[in-house]
Amino acid sequence: MSIKINETVCNGCGGAEESFCVRVCPGDLLKLSAGGKAAIRDPRDCWDCAACVKACPRQAIEMYLPAQIGGRGATLKAKTGRDKIIWTLKHPEGREEVFEIEAEKVI
């Protein structure tokens, strides 16, 4: 499990005291690179909690599975609002599946 950060979309949360992804990672795995973009120290250390994916205000972070347990091209992104999270699951063949999960809804 790990994440990919889209460097053209990431702006390092310019202006924020600390980038949101850097703040929430429970393993302190993210940092800002010299270019001011978020970067993961070592993709092997990622737990798959998705805290950074959900915290990114620009949806610059997507998660994927490493090849040994998947890795055929599926990715997940999240757009977090006050009342819901909109997840976009991209299937390997390119099809997108969207899930809107309300924060108050118990599944």
């Binding site: 994916v53 299937h91 599944i107």
Partner: peptide, 19 residues
């Protein structure tokens, strides 16, 4: 899938990866 997105999103990726 929604339940797993709320706690273990990797499971949803695995279903998609394996089609």
């Amino acid at each position: 899938k929604e339940a797993y997105l709320n706690m273990c999103p990797g499971m949803v990726l695995a279903w998609a990866d394996y089609g």
